[in-house]
Design a protein around this nucleic acid. Structure first.
Lengths: 140, 140
DNA sequence: TAATAACCTACCAAATTAGTCAACTATCTA
DNA sequence: TAGATAGTTGACTAATTTGGTAGGTTATTA
């Protein structure tokens, strides 16, 4: 039960952007330095965030990325979805037509895993980017 | 955010055992067939479950594995812990002395990830093996 | 027009996962 | 007591995922 670095970086970078790029564009090289994340890797991640319309980009000098919505309108779950960080605990991938573990029916634990996904998804829907920007002052 | 097959199999196999092996030993070859899990892989998993004293083993004909506790005393979290299926969302591994992402302090999102771990761990503590054994009659 | 910064594509190495295979040991039963 | 059953252990491996790197192209603006 773990999250990928990609997911962790995406959330971290978005919090950074909410702090430093809510008014004017903020370059990824700055995010890269502040948060210690590889620039090329950030570029890949922001490609996806842009497709999901969570951020806008501006090329050229003085350009960079800027939030496309209010930070209290962006859920952490939105970020997960944007970069395809799946909440996936079932074996069948939640496809209603698929069956678990190669058998001809849902496995004994299917409902349990779906419930767990619900618990996680629900939490990620309640937390917004703005919550993390404010909270970080509490972090040592 | 996903779980490994190992974790999924462990829970599934324990539910199977709770159904078929709460009175007398149940061989892994039977679990293997019923749940469509590789026997050798199950053996590795049950090795860990045994070390954690969630199951007992009995060699020889008529032997197999049997639950070592009441099924309503075994939390899903216990199974996760037994097979070392970690709930790990932070980058620093929750080591209080470690820092996130190579920096000299906790990252902006550290508290958020710890809270998420709490939400998941809490849910896994509330569900017991007995809940899944009963629930499966509802599964199509 | 030079510098900046996003954009795009290909490639790669390490780690993890999900097993397989083979040999061995203990125990029960016929 | 022989043989079948069933757990135990360790080595190995193929496939996938992860976490990048490298290099170039395009757009913008000072």
């Amino acid at each position: 039960m773990r999250i990928t670095s990609r997911g962790r970086y995406a959330v971290l970078a978005m919090v950074d952007l909410a702090k430093f790029g809510s008014q004017k564009p903020c370059s990824l090289s700055h995010v890269s330095i502040r948060q210690n994340i590889s620039l090329s890797y950030l570029e890949q991640i922001f490609n996806d965030l842009k497709k999901a319309e969570l951020v806008k980009s501006q090329k050229g000098p003085g350009g960079g990325y800027i939030l496309n919505k209010d930070k209290d309108k962006i859920k952490i779950l939105d970020i997960f979805n944007a970069i395809d960080e799946k909440i996936k605990t079932t074996g069948c991938g939640n496809n209603p037509n698929a069956f678990c573990s190669g058998t001809n029916k849902k496995c004994l634990t299917h409902n349990f895993w779906e419930n767990l996904e619900g618990v996680i998804g629900n939490y990620l829907s309640t937390v917004h980017l703005s919550d993390l920007v404010e909270e970080q002052t509490l972090v040592k």
